[in-house]
Design a binder for these strands. Sequence first.
DNA 1: AATTTTTCCAACCGCTTGTAG
DNA 2: ACTACAAGCGGTTGGAAAAAT
Length: 272
Amino acid sequence: MGRAPCCDKASVKRGPWSPEEDEQLRTYIQRHGIGGNWIALPQKAGLNRCGKSCRLRWLNYLRPDIKHGGYTEQEDYIICSLYSSIGSRWSIIASKLPGRTDNDVKNYWNTKLKKKAMAAAGASGAFAAHATPPALSPAASASSSSSSGDVRFAVYRQPQAQPPGLRHFDAPPCKPQTELAPVPPTTVALDGTGGVWASAPASDAVGLGNVFFPELGGGNQLFPYGDFFGGLQDRALELSACYFPNMAEMWGAAAASDHAHAKPQSLCNPLT
DNA sequence: AATTTTTCCAACCGCTTGTAG
DNA sequence: ACTACAAGCGGTTGGAAAAAT
């Protein structure tokens, strides 16, 4: 027996939302808030929709602070970097990008950014190194195509043994994340050969390091792309453990496991 | 201009996680 | 400790729009 559905699918409306429904939901939430119960909300708001559907519509589309499209190179880089570190944990990645939702980031990655990254890899091999830090994870990739014709594939990273010296990491309280500044006129070095990720003067640029790894340099220091997976790799792992506290334990568990190549639960994106 | 193919993204599905009783 | 329920999350899908033929 499966679990009971959250609502009677036969009696609620499904599919695309009409402008009237959007307005109804927006107005209700602005007046009364969510009220801590999405299941009860549609009835209160006079909507013939599943609560889950209302929640999704609000979170992914109607919220006032949502940004749609127009991804900057800076955001591209953040998505690529985090994807390479933590895989398809879209909610975490989206949480580092103000105004972006997990669904939006996921769609953007699957439809555009992945191709862009792979194209860069084709030209220089850079993304392969980027997506799969060499000393961390030998990579294999697979591809498939959907019924609608999209090429949909995932990179699967096999974890290696936990790096020496990283037995356990008690994460210090994470510092508040720096709000992304307006996009500087930057170019991104995707050649993976030690270039910096932003070419604008340091005084104008917001380095990735400032957003995610302020400990590396602080101030306006630009993020050293090459060093990320080179000399600073161990440090990056520790920092990952700070920003993603379960990571060190997950790697540790994988290393300790009899299944040396087992996928740490909830870490890597699945192939399916 | 008509048809086919590809791209994009909103929405759905179902599993996992958190929590109240 | 256990159960039930709601929310959160990530993978997948359907179909509209755009591009190619």
